[in-house]
Design a protein around this nucleic acid. Sequence first.
DNA 1: TTGTACGCGTTATCAA
DNA 2: TTGATAACGCGTACAA
Lengths: 330, 330
Amino acid sequence: MAATIHDVAKLAGVHYSTVSRVQNGKAKITQETKEKIYSAMKQLDYHPNSVARNLANGLSGAIGVVVDAKDAEAFSNVFFSRSLFAIERAAQLRGYNVIIANGGSHSGNAVESLVLQKKVDGLILPPSTAKPALIQKIGDFPLVILGQPDTGRLCASWVDNNNEQGAELAVEHLYLKGYEKIAYLGGDRKLGFVERRIKGYLNALRKDAPGIIVTCESVPEQACLAGMSMLSSKDAPDAILCNDNMAALGVIQAARKLNIPIPQQLGIVTFDNYPLAEFTDPALTAIDIDTSLLGEQTANLLFQRIERKTTNQQILLSAVLLQRDSSDRK
Amino acid sequence: MAATIHDVAKLAGVHYSTVSRVQNGKAKITQETKEKIYSAMKQLDYHPNSVARNLANGLSGAIGVVVDAKDAEAFSNVFFSRSLFAIERAAQLRGYNVIIANGGSHSGNAVESLVLQKKVDGLILPPSTAKPALIQKIGDFPLVILGQPDTGRLCASWVDNNNEQGAELAVEHLYLKGYEKIAYLGGDRKLGFVERRIKGYLNALRKDAPGIIVTCESVPEQACLAGMSMLSSKDAPDAILCNDNMAALGVIQAARKLNIPIPQQLGIVTFDNYPLAEFTDPALTAIDIDTSLLGEQTANLLFQRIERKTTNQQILLSAVLLQRDSSDRK
DNA sequence: TTGTACGCGTTATCAA
DNA sequence: TTGATAACGCGTACAA
């Protein structure tokens, strides 16, 4: 059996409440008794029982990170993992543990019980599970959404990368490289972040330029079809901004089939920088986001809310452009 | 403030210990009082405080999943995420929470304190952090290693995919497709799983066939160089089994530079089936493992150890071959 | 079948 | 500065 605070007290010849005070640091203790206690703790290899500690001060010492079951698949992983690791690091720094929970079909249940059973002091949710109903149900429980919610602004804190600015960055880059007719391919406009990207794309287009926007399912086959019809039309674009890596892959395939050289006759920039992106042929210029920073900021925002009951905040992180071959026309 | 067991008892007009019994199910309670209590619980929206419950019965209700900081990078993510989600699902089914912990530089500290502070009832570790020192330190604490340990067999449970069998599968497939001179490319033989793959490769080679084994750093550039020298040598192979997707990418590049058509003159099979693998040109035949099952089995093994103190077990999961274009010689 | 009383390991509020 | 004592919310022998 592990040593408890009582064992330490006995060995040090003091009352256990004194040991508790030394633990928590705040109170004033004689150097002498302090040392007696520390030595006793070392001797017994004492470690405070966090469960008891949490019960006593009404906390759980953990935050919950909810994953959407859908995100568990394929590429979304990468995005999620990176953020998750950053969240874990930030949490560890603050002495919190990170509990992950699947927000899938039983979402409501799992997430709610995490809160109601006091297993976590705060929650990080993806937009997909941050439904108004849930948010209302758990009241003013500390909560940060990892991603900009689709529906309105909600009454919540969130952190997201700046999709609008990212798209502008991409378009400006393509103009700079001498491309003149820029199209947007991929994505589902029902999704908030897609719509924001398209907005940025339109913002950055030259005044006289017509927007060419084609959406499609996020698989290379569909993007290839869409790309081929786009590229073989009368007024084909000479550059395409792709909504994701899958779309970009499809466009590369389409260009190959039509014998359009990249980047000479067609420039490509893609959102997202999955490991895939730098190993395609040609390597894809990508709009990248600092997922690590994203996770860190999200966690920090949450800890602020937990510890100081701050007001809601929304944070947008700027995207950067990783220039690679697919848009590198000399 | 949330309702406690006392509130429920008061409302139901019984003693709170009776409420506790109803919670835990085992004891015999009159249908009548049972209903009174249930209705009171509903009325107050009562949820037992898990922290208090854990303190009372000496458990934490959580398992820890340790991540190696190195694995947080790049491709390893995908492997890890998939397993993690499966672990989470299995845990949720059993009523456990999953706490993730970074086993990076401060590995010892973070992981140890998870155990010593009784934050978890069991631990899942990657081989890299399952050092004998740590294992000894935490004694017979329930522990499962997610991957076959490199050093000896250790005194621990572990779950891994069968790398040896996977390599055999790959070689047999290539022979079946009519390839005759099969080489192995990539990986670091200091790593246990690489050595096991190579062992399987050698096992499955025909008796008269010489083993051609070239190791290299796990990046396409290096693999490309290694592949080019291999493919332009006197007795070049007509098929290559790659240790990972990066190696396979390098080989594809090498073949392209040397104008060797795939799969006509060169067959490729790769270990690992990252999202990348099916989108290369040509699509890569891959030795795949069921990461989801891997996670599930790992979790279940751990729960067995926690709940029934079973003896150590080692589980190997068979790999399967996903046939794609890179080895599909007609 | 139900009530009583104590313990789980801490923290926090009193006195001393 | 330190010691005593009461919570924290629940589980569980033991007794009724």
